[in-house]
Each structure stands twice: as C-alpha cells, then as structure tokens.
Design a protein around this nucleic acid. Structure first.
Lengths: 223, 223
DNA sequence: ATATATCCGTTGTTTTTACAACACTGAGGT
DNA sequence: ACCTCAGTGTTGTAAAAACAACGGATATAT
C-alpha cells in the first residue's frame, strides 16, 4: 500500500486510525492500480465486483451514446469514492463508464466484503457504515444539485446555476472551475461552441469575467 | 398509528416485525399527518427536523424558480422516504419544496433520533441502518437515471429515454406512466405543448402509441 | 526550432424549442 | 341538461441551440 497516508484522509476512513485502516484495507482485499490519461477504469455494461477510491488524479463518470456524444455525469478527485451505490442497491452491472482524466491511482475494494465485513474488521464496521451513509447522502445532494443545473432551459441559465454553485463553494465571487471548456459543456450537456458564445456575451454584458479556468461573477448594475 | 400495516411494508422497516416497528416508531417520535392536494409538506429554505415517509398518496419534490417555472425533481409514492439525505449529509435547510399531488398521508420521523437511536431501539438499529443504506443507494441510482434523461439534447431523445425506462421497469412494451402530460413535461424539463407535439409526431411515425397514461413502444420497421 | 495537437472563441446556417393562443374532450358538480 | 374546468393536442412565430467550419493561441513533442 503505497499511498496509505492519502487513503487515510479519505472520508471513507474518517475516524479510523492508520493502523486500523491497514487491517481494514487488507480485509477488503484492497488493490491499487495506476491508470494513464483517457484509460477506462470501468466500461459501461461491465460486471462489477469492486468499488473504487480515487487516491490521486481525477476520474470522470461518463455516458456515451450511440453517436459518440459524451456526457460527464460527475467528476471525482482524491479521496472520492465511486460505484459504491451499486453495492448497496444490489446492482451488479454498471450503466456508465469511468475514465481517468489524467494519470490516476485507484484503490479497489471488494464490494461483497464491504457489504458484509469479515469478523476481524467488525470493530470498524460501524464507523465504516456511518461514513458510507454520509458519503452516499452527500453524493445524493450533489446529484440533485446537478439536476438543478440541467433543468434550466437556456445555456445562460445553466451557466449561471453552475457558476453560482462554485462561487458559493469557494465562498468568493472569484473561483477556479475544475473543467476545461469541453468538459464543462459535457457536464452541463450543451454544445461547446454555443456555450463559449454565451460566455462571451455574458462577459460583454458585464456579468462575468474569466480567463482560462478562473471565473469571476460581477455584481449586476441595474440600469 | 392508523396506518401501521402500510408502514411496515415500507423498505425502511423491511425485516423488522410489526411489534418491533411499533416500538421503533415510538422511539423516533413518529407523527402522522394528512395533506390535501397541492398542500406544501416542506417549503424550500425551511429548517428541517424530520424526514418523511409517504404512507398513502403521492408527493412531488419540486423546485420553482423566480418566474414560477416548476420542475419536478422526483415523485414519491407509498412506502417511499424523502428528505432523508439531509440527515446524513448534515444539512439542515431544504433547497426544494415537497408538495402533495393528491390527498396524502405522511409519517414524520425525528431526524436527530434517526441518526442516533435511543437505547431501547438499538436492537433494530443495525437493520434500520442497513435498510437506509439501500434506500439512499437506490435513490442515488434513480437520480443518475434522471440525469441521463435530462442530458439528452432533444425532446424526442428525452422522451425515448424516459419511456424506455418505464418499459424496462414494467418489463413490457406497454406500460402506464405515473404522470399526466404537464407533470411529465415538468419532470423532463421541456415545454408541455412542444412535448405533446413531439409525441404526436412519434405516433405518426409509428414509433409509439398512447392513450392517456398508457404508452406502448412499437418495434421500429427499418425502411 | 519546428511541427503537431489541443484548447478556445467566432461566425453563419439549420434545426429545435419555447411561447402564446386556441380548440376539443371528458369528468364533476349543480 | 348545462356549466365549468382541467387535461390534452394543434398551430404559427420568435428565440435559442446545435452543428459545422475555421482561425488564432498555447502547449507539447521531436
């Protein structure tokens, strides 16, 4: 286990000591694996026997349709868990793909063993389940928030909804977004060029400023 | 507790006997309340101190914007739980509203007591937590599926995605949908009349048949 | 240093959607 | 039997998005 310190910082292991974490991870048949940019970690339709923890790097949960249109459902970074809902919902094929956005390290945990921990690990079981509940509940809220962006009818409204979210998270009117333009468009489910166009209009109207991934929301002057 | 038998059928109490359920519900300060059609059960922005279980009737999780555009995020019916994610994510204000679609009975459970059950109820605690994990994980998957509908670019694709889901759920190419037209449009985040128009075109092209809430998907004849 | 690929913005055209207005239907109530 | 109203489909128009194609800037590799 090369990244044990990073792994211990994950919300999944919150409240569990490093020593205990090592025992636990052994019980869960934890295995590390490294992926290069654009590698598939899971492919849609694949049988699922483990959940993933992002140790380093970033992954995208993506859905691609017949024509190759890509949608980014979610992005996960260090410390984030993915594909854990399938374990608890007892679904064993994954309906989307997971791919590495950059060089990424994933820790895989056996999904059957997570659901029914072995006797040795039982003393951490409660804490693990508690953490898991919180993680899934928070993910639930993020999904709901994303739905909120997507239900907006126009590209401008989607952008404002998305940018507001990040401004609120950053507690500042200037903030970096974790996507490039194409990724942001795929995340908001709009055309990239149309989105760029709208961003420019919004800048011309004095609503926002941006440079690369740094955005700034300007307080509106009412005419 | 007038609806104890219905309540026991809920996934939340799965594996818990009627007697135990009664003890448990008393511990959770469970309170029943009846709502009329269009009554608000929770209003967006409101402080939250309980989670809800739909005992009878239907509720919509809705978000309304400044101009009164309504979006239906989810619909819950008998046995379904709502607002439970906030308890575990430790968020205490609700960002959307919950309203009764028809005459509806809700059982409220104290959200602090759910998270930390009293000693008497501890013997059911594990089972309750297990059920809760499953419920939240399944809800997670439903939200992801909804995101899948919403990311479709055209009304037709959204409809097909939505209708396919229901066909698969019903394991049949003919099935009833749980929405009227306006509700379906609000759920898919499209204009009702445009949607009706698209449905008619799809019928003209022989892709689908429908009458009221009964839909049928026809296998496509390739020209 | 040069070639190559990636990212981003711009523009014009076509397609699709939203919006508004209205007609038809059937259910319920009086 | 009549009225009212909610639900649904239809049509035309205006607005918005998708799409395609391109140019410039920047980063990366050779």
């Amino acid at each position: 286990m090369n990244y044990i310190l990073e792994i211990c910082k994950s919300p999944l292991l919150s409240g569990i000591s490093k020593t205990d974490a090592e025992t636990l991870l052994a019980c869960l048949s934890a295995k590390e694996r490294v992926y290069d940019k654009n590698d598939f970690i899971f492919s849609a339709g694949q049988q699922l026997d483990s959940i993933g923890l992002v140790v380093a790097g970033r992954v995208h949960i993506v859905k691609e349709d017949f024509w190759g249109n890509r949608t980014i459902i979610e992005q996960f970074a260090s410390g984030d868990l993915f594909a854990e809902a399938f374990t608890y919902a007892r679904v064993d094929t994954i309906p989307f793909s997971v791919m590495a956005v950059e060089r990424t390290v994933i820790l895989f945990l056996d999904h059957k063993k997570i659901a029914k921990l072995c006797p040795v690990a039982c003393k951490f079981h409660n804490r693990l389940v508690e953490n898991m509940l919180r993680i899934i509940a928070e993910k639930n809220m993020r999904l709901t928030q994303k739905i909120n962006h997507l239900t907006k009818r126009t590209t401008r409204e989607k952008l404002l909804s998305f940018l507001s979210e990040h401004a609120i998270r950053a507690a500042s009117n200037s903030f970096n977004i974790p996507f490039n333009r194409q990724e942001m468009a795929d995340y908001l489910s709009v055309d990239r060029s149309a989105m760029s166009n709208e961003l420019s209009k919004m800048r011309d109207e004095g609503m926002i400023e941006f440079n690369k991934n740094l955005f700034e929301l300007r307080s509106q002057v009412v005419k």
